[in-house]
Amino acid sequence: MKGGFPLEAQKTNTNLESDYTSIVQSAAFQNLLSEKKKFIIPITIFFFCFYFALPILTSYSTILNHNFIGSITWAWVFAFLQFVMTWGLCMLYSKKATKFDKLAEKVIHEGGKNG
């Protein structure tokens, strides 16, 4: 017993660490991370820009105060579009997640060969 853990548990932990290291360094895992970053970073930037545009525009300009239809202003239209944008991005991510799942399965399959 070393460090409070049985020797078998320490060997298993070492094996898991080496398995994890080999998986992280694999081409399939790096491809998965790359594909996710190429999708998530631009979508996140778009989301934050669109989301914060409403409070910034209503606080520091009067551009959204003009009427759209009747007494409904562009601010209300923009606020409604934020709900549409959120649902749209959610559906887009759900479809894209299928590709990520396939890439993750490839990582798992290749990890099984190596381990």
Rank of each mutant, 00 (worst) to 15 (best):
P55Q: 05
T58E: 10
Y51I: 10
L7S: 06
E35Q: 10
W87N: 10
P42D: 08
I23A: 00
T44S: 13
I45V: 12
S22Y: 06
L89C: 09
K99H: 04
K95D: 03
L92G: 05
F5C: 04
S59E: 14
G88A: 15
I40G: 01
F52W: 11
A27S: 12
G3S: 07
F5T: 04
Y20E: 04
E105L: 14
D19T: 01
C49G: 10
K36I: 14
C49D: 01
I108N: 12
S34V: 02
A75H: 01
F83S: 08
W87H: 13
L81R: 04
A79D: 12
A53K: 08
F39L: 15
L92D: 07
E8W: 06
I72D: 01
L64C: 08
C49M: 09
A97M: 08
M85C: 08
G4K: 07
G88D: 06
T58S: 14
K106I: 06
S22W: 04
L103D: 00
A79F: 09
T86Y: 03
I69R: 13
K95C: 02
K38M: 11
L16P: 01
N65A: 15
A53N: 05
C49A: 14
G115N: 09
Y51V: 11
K102Y: 02
H109T: 14
M1I: 01
M1T: 03
A9Q: 03
L33P: 01
N13W: 01
V84D: 06
T98L: 05
S61L: 11
G70S: 11
G88W: 11
Q10M: 13
G112K: 15
K38F: 04
K113T: 00
E8K: 09
G88N: 10
E17C: 07
L7A: 11
M1Q: 02
F52L: 14
L89G: 09
V84R: 09
K102M: 06
S59G: 15
K106N: 10
